[in-house]
Every structure is written in C-alpha cells, then in structure tokens.
Nucleic acid binder design. Structure first.
Lengths: 150, 150
DNA sequence: ATTTGTAATTAGAATAGTTCTAATTCTTAC
DNA sequence: GTAAGAATTAGAACTATTCTAATTACAAAT
C-alpha cells in the first residue's frame, strides 16, 4: 500500500472513532509501518522528529495511544522496560532474541490460535492473546533470505 | 509442602547457584507461595514487612531478582506497569482480567505447548514461552468451586 | 469572513517503578 | 578473633510515562 492510501485508511479509522487525522498522527503511523522493528516511544520520537521538528514526546505518546485505541497498532510489553509498538495486525507471536534484544514477528496459523484459546475454561472470554518466546535465534535462511520453517 | 521443607528446597536451589539462604530471601519466597496472586514488588514488600520490619524495598527487589535467576519464580510483564511475580513453575498461561485487574493462572497441557513451539522456524530456540490472554472472566463454577473447563 | 467551541499539540512538571551507590552488617573460612 | 566476601540497607538517581496548563489548529455556525 502506498503512503497516500495508507493515510486515507488511517483517516477513515480515526474518523470511525470520532477523531481527526493530523500530521502528527500520520507521520507516527508512517514511521511504524516503514520500519517494523517494534520501536519504543523514544525511538518513534527520534524517527518522526526530522519530518516534524516541532513535535513533542508527549504528542508521540498521545498518537501511539490513539493508534492503539483505534486497533491500528499493538502495544507490546515483552519485558520490564519501555513499551514497544507493532503495526502488524495479523495474528502473530513474538520472538524476543535475548542476545540482540530484537523482537521478530512469527506468523501464527489460525488452528494454533484456536488450540491455544481452547485451554481456557468456560466463562473466560479473551479479547486478545499474546504469545511471546524468549531465547536466541540463529535462523538459517533459505534462498529468498527468509527464515525457513522447521 | 510445609514451610520447613520449602525453606530447605530454597536453600538447596540457592546453594546450587553459589548463593546463601537468608531470612529475607526465605520470607520473600514464602509470601509468594502463600498468596499466589502475582503481586508487585511493592505488594511483596508490604507483606514481608510485618515479618521483617527492617527489610528495605531494595532488598525485596534483590531477593525477587535472585529467585527469578534461580528459576524459582517467574517475572511477569502483562502490561505496562510494575512487574509481577509468580511462583508457579508448572507450564501455564495467564489470563488478565481487565475488569478486576487480576491475573489467573491457566493450566497449559503439554501438547498445546508443543503445538505452539512448533510455529517457530528452524533456528529459533526458545528458552521460554509466555502466553497471555486479556479479557474479562465471568467463569461459572462447578460443585467444587473450581472454574469448569469448556 | 469571523466567531466560537472543541480537539489536538506542546513544554515542562510530576509521578511511578526500578536500579544504583556507598556504607554497614552479616557469614564463612581461616 | 580476623579477614574477605556476600548481603542488606537507605536514599539518591534514573527511566519511562502521565499529567497539567497554556497554546494552537480546526470545523461549524453565524
């Protein structure tokens, strides 16, 4: 999706919640989509600044909160420390590499998600599930440069 | 397990890591086992204080960190906010009730754990997995007062 | 076009949770 | 009993986030 249609989609989602599209919200969302490495609010701030030099950190927090409320972004708390933000809305797990500190998205097939949900006793109705692995990744890559599935 | 044998088991585990058993470590571990409600460091501090009135918050943090390092306790970060501590070492998921703010342990059958691990591409070797549900629980109870399995 | 009300942004102060520091106390081995 | 290292302590420092109050931007009604 190009930047313009992204921006329109964002405007639509915001409007659905009775909120306005603003340059700040657009740029914050854009930097999240551009580099999907689960940045912290501070990191987002640093990436947005060149584009909007007068933006404040408080606004970055506000924008991120807004995007999370509109279900355009997920807030991820993998470990004690700053919250990280993830614009991947597909069902996925996170692999947190303790060596590099990086977090990778791991695609989550629907049947696994279902199987996991099924462990809940009656009456527990989950709004969301978060699956996080912790360890070290030394994934071999296939011809396309993608991590191969075991 | 009674308190004495618990204390011995703790002493053993600490010794295995070249660490000493101390009254502070014992009492911190005891309060975690006594009320398994995923308390924060502050809450642990409050519960330990009557027993050891001179203990400091820093020591509570130190003890918790030590217990986590010895694999006797899990540190849980469900959402932004204070880290919570969980002495349940069985494989289990967490259900975070957004209404009450409480977190329940959900037993995790081995085959589900395996199925979840299997989503990882080759080369990703997880040291641990954390599965967290978020939602609201209004679990019906069976005759024994336990939540019934769906 | 102007006004008016509301939404959003801003800078900086305040807060919460945790970690660090340096001094003291407790243990253990000699 | 002494020396060396481990653990504890109080408080300062630090980090991430939220709050506050003032300002700016915007949209609707006039």
């Amino acid at each position: 999706m190009d930047t313009e249609s992204r921006t329109e989609a964002l405007a639509q989602r915001l409007a659905d919640s009775g909120l306005r599209s603003t340059p700040q919200r657009e740029v914050v969302y854009d930097v999240l989509l551009k580099k999907r490495d689960h940045p912290t609010a501070d990191e987002v701030f640093a990436r947005v600044k060149p584009e909007l030099p007068t933006i404040s950190l408080a606004t970055v927090y506000n924008c991120l909160e807004t995007l999370v409320a509109c279900d355009l972004v997920r807030a991820v708390n993998i470990e004690r420390g700053p919250t990280r933000y993830c614009p991947n809305l597909q069902p996925h797990a996170h692999f947190h590499d303790v060596k590099t500190g990086r977090t990778h998205d791991i695609d989550l097939p629907p049947e696994v998600l279902e199987r996991v949900q099924a462990v809940l006793p009656a009456g527990y109705t989950p709004a969301s599930v978060e699956i996080t692995f912790r360890g070290s990744a030394c994934a071999p890559l296939d011809a396309t440069g993608q991590a191969t599935k075991s």
